[in-house]
Simulated assay, not measured.
Amino acid sequence: MKRWLGKAETALGNHSDRLNAINIFPVADGDTGTNLYLTVRAAHRALQDAAPAGAGQLPAEVRPEARSEPAGQQAQLNDVGAVLARAGQAAMEKAKGNSGTLFSVFLCAAAEPLAGHARLTSSLLAAALNRAQIRAWSALSDPVPGTMLSVMEAAGRAAAAVDAGQNGNDSNHALGLVLDAAVGAALEAVVRTEGQLNVLQAAHVVDAGGVGMLLILDCLRSAVLGEELRSELLDGLHGYDLQDPHIHTDMPDDDGVEVMCTISLSPLDAATLRQRLDELGDSVIMSQVGPSADAEGRYRWRVHVHVPDPAPALGVIRSLGDPAEVSVSELALPRDPSGEVSAEGR
């Protein structure tokens, strides 16, 4: 999992400018590549200090510092689901934009079927991809086909179909077949996005978030199988040639702002907030951060919405709780990825 997210951070850093260049849905703000990169970076960095149990260490029973370690900490480092959940929660807390928020939802949900397992198998991967795509679709108040959601769904369905034909085979070969099928289906879904959304068809480009998700899935295949990334996946994708101009040059600016925050809410207040934000704006994404409620029965939520004016949205949010990690970004001002993405990421 750490190797996967490290590869994804590097790949998205390398491709952020081209992803930004074709980002026109749901708003043409040219930041999908940057948002995915920063969100994946947060997930990866959450795991950088978490070495597997026993890696370069003495056994716990002879290490003096082991007496002060939290119970189960070392066991969790060998638990695929626990490690991925840690990364997912970090991504959720720092998620940027629509694409970053949806990827963090994907990551958190994928961790759930993997909990308690020290090894990834074809059946576990298929279950994880399916859970993740369902959760991502449900996080949006108004999900739209032809986006990264469609790519997630295609990958999950292909993985499930191949795994079903393996009759419980938990070999690495079966896992490889599932990974290949997921990436292949993701590529086909990316190609289809251009015809699923009128705005993409008019601009002759595929969906930026979909391409980002394809890169992330290929990084997973590469990390698990120990193979190189398949650079040919991107060949021929409309709008993705390096010589293609930035698509936003002649497009009008989008009005409004993107509001994001993290907030603890009861289930009723969460439902109320989603309804109120749906009335105020669009691109509403709400997803739970972590599985447990606090002592007052409230869960942490990551909230994302596009609105004409931030004041009413922030007023509704603050009427229901005390938000943290609040950000308000102008949709009309494309963010320059060169100011965010490190040279190492590129």
Rank of each mutant, 00 (worst) to 15 (best):
E344Y: 04
E69G: 00
D282A: 04
S329N: 13
K2C: 05
R63M: 12
V191C: 09
A271F: 05
M152P: 01
P143N: 02
S338L: 04
D17R: 14
L268W: 04
E340P: 05
A160L: 09
A127W: 07
D207A: 12
A164W: 05
D336M: 03
A132V: 01
Q57F: 05
N78S: 15
D31Y: 14
R63S: 13
A43Q: 06
G339V: 06
P312D: 06
S338G: 03
W301Q: 10
Q89K: 15
S319Q: 09
V205L: 02
L177Y: 10
A293W: 00
E232R: 15
L314F: 04
A118E: 14
D218W: 14
T272E: 14
N23K: 11
D278G: 03
A109C: 09
I134H: 06
N35D: 13
T249M: 13
S99Y: 01
V206P: 02
V289C: 08
C108Q: 15
W301E: 03
L38V: 12
R192P: 09
A181P: 08
A71F: 06
A343N: 11
V206T: 07
G72E: 02
L120I: 06
A109T: 07
N23H: 15
L149G: 02
I285F: 00
S122C: 15
G212D: 10
E340S: 11
G209L: 06
G56A: 09
D31H: 14
L47V: 00
V211F: 02
C219N: 14
A332W: 10
S171Q: 02
D163I: 04
R192E: 15
A111M: 15
T39P: 02
A128H: 01
T34D: 12
T10R: 14
M1D: 09
N98C: 01
H246I: 08
L36P: 12
E325V: 01
E296L: 00
V144C: 15
A208K: 10
S138T: 01
Q275C: 04
S138M: 07
P26K: 03
L277W: 00
S319Y: 00
S338W: 02
P113Q: 11
H204F: 06
E232L: 13
A126F: 12
G226S: 05
G56F: 11
L215W: 12
A186W: 12
G212S: 09
R67D: 01
S292A: 14
S342C: 03
E69R: 05
N35K: 10
L124H: 13
L268C: 06
D49A: 04
E194M: 06
D142P: 01
W4Y: 11
G239T: 09
D282N: 09
A11P: 05
G146T: 13
C108A: 12
A343G: 11
A53C: 11
G81E: 10
Q133M: 01
H44P: 07
D282S: 08
R45V: 01
V191N: 07
R119M: 05
G315E: 13
R18M: 08
A90R: 05
I216M: 14
P59A: 08
S264G: 01
R157W: 09
Y299H: 04
F106L: 03
A85F: 13
M152C: 02
I134M: 09
G13Y: 10
A160V: 13
H238P: 06
Q288P: 06
S122G: 15
G210C: 02
D170H: 12
L229C: 12
L220T: 12
V328C: 05
L177S: 15
